[in-house]
């Protein structure tokens, strides 16, 4: 085979890996259509979009770099408080708050990455959990700034671009969250298909070979950890802005645990797992809340146990089967 022909094959093969699958297009069309289809459910749709973004953030480190975390709420909370405080004391502009929340969370991620990147899975789980608990305590004790156990109140948001006001039905809020989710998703999709993303997958597969291939493993992990933190910060900022309230609950352990369940439901390592998981999770929560709101925790526990014991394969098989029903597109890209 001559070099140029083989090069063509290599190029095509690489392109195929990043091309949009019809199922992906269908997914986003549906997401856009939800806006018109469920005009009375904007509040829950907004919650789904935010949870999806949060789960996407965890997927970036767990699914693509193999970093386990039990304390991802640390970054959600950081973004939420940052955006809330900025709105309360400095500027009510939503986009500024979003950027600020992402920046502070990314910084926190960068600062804590040396703690997380060493040791075994077990120490990682412990340290991420510890960091989230510490932040909970810090936010609790800085009551003069954060409102402590009463939560951060008195946040008012200016209209987006000075035009689109947040309404009580959550219409603007949902549109805003969905757009932020979509844009950040596109960026994430681009990144995981880049040489950087490929090196992360290498690290996840085999750290020894990655280092022996010239990949500076600690730096790459720090980079994706900070990026993932920024995504979680964005989710936190959206939460603070669209609910105009921040409570200590954002740092709570159950946030991190719920998030793991979301990713377990949807599956990690293909970006859509968090989004699908978030939808399933919220519908589940909504359905159970109608007949037994008090013992939601019991059901979440049961689902976790069942999923780990083998239910996961069933769901992922179903998702794969669904995707397979879409006809494969032609060579165009």
């Amino acid at each position: 085979m001559s070099g140029t022909v083989l090069e063509q094959h290599v190029r095509q093969s690489l392109r195929r890996a990043r091309r949009w699958h019809p199922a992906e297009l269908a997914f986003w069309l549906l997401a856009a259509a939800s806006f018109a289809l469920f005009p009375t459910r904007f509040l829950i749709l907004n919650e789904i979009a935010i949870l999806a973004l949060f789960a996407l953030s965890l997927d970036l480190i767990l699914g693509y770099a193999g970093i386990v975390s039990l304390g991802h709420a640390a970054f959600l909370g950081m973004g939420a408080y940052s955006a809330g405080l900025l709105a309360k004391y400095v500027t009510a502009d939503p986009l500024a708050g979003l950027a600020f929340g992402m920046a502070t969370s990314a910084l926190l991620g960068l600062l804590t990455s040396p703690l997380v990147l060493r040791g075994t899975d077990l120490t990682r789980l412990m340290i991420t959990l510890g960091v989230a608990l510490i932040l909970y305590e810090v936010a609790n004790s800085l009551a003069w700034l954060t409102g402590g156990a009463d939560g951060l109140q008195g946040i008012t948001m200016a209209p987006i671009f000075g035009t689109f006001d947040f309404d009580i039905f959550g219409r603007t809020a949902y549109l805003y969250s969905l757009l932020v989710l979509f844009i950040l998703f596109l960026i994430a999709r681009r990144i995981v298909n880049s040489p950087f993303g490929l090196s992360l997958r290498g690290i996840r597969d085999n750290q020894l070979r990655a280092a022996a291939s010239g990949v500076p493993v600690p730096w790459r992990l720090a980079a994706i950890y900070a990026l993932s933190a920024a995504y979680a910060g964005a989710a936190g900022a959206l939460l603070a802005q669209t609910t105009q309230f921040v409570s200590l609950d954002v740092f709570d352990f159950h946030r991190s645990a719920d998030l793991m369940l979301v990713l377990i439901i949807g599956g990690a390592g293909y970006l859509y797992g968090g989004l699908i998981g978030a939808i399933a999770f919220k519908f589940l929560q909504d359905a159970i809340a109608t007949f037994t709101p008090q013992y939601w925790m019991f059901w979440i526990g049961l689902f976790l146990v069942l999923f780990v014991l083998g239910g996961r394969e069933l769901i992922h098989g179903a998702i794969k089967a669904l995707v397979a029903r879409f006809p494969e597109r032609g060579a165009s890209s």
């Binding site: 075994t120 369940l261 019991f298 526990g301 976790l304 146990v305 780990v308």
Partner: peptide, 17 residues
């Protein structure tokens, strides 16, 4: 380890509720 952690957290939640 991750599965074990998720599984046992599930048990904790069930025990608590």
């Amino acid at each position: 380890h991750l599965d074990q952690v998720m599984f046992s957290i599930g048990l904790v939640f069930m025990a608590v509720a």
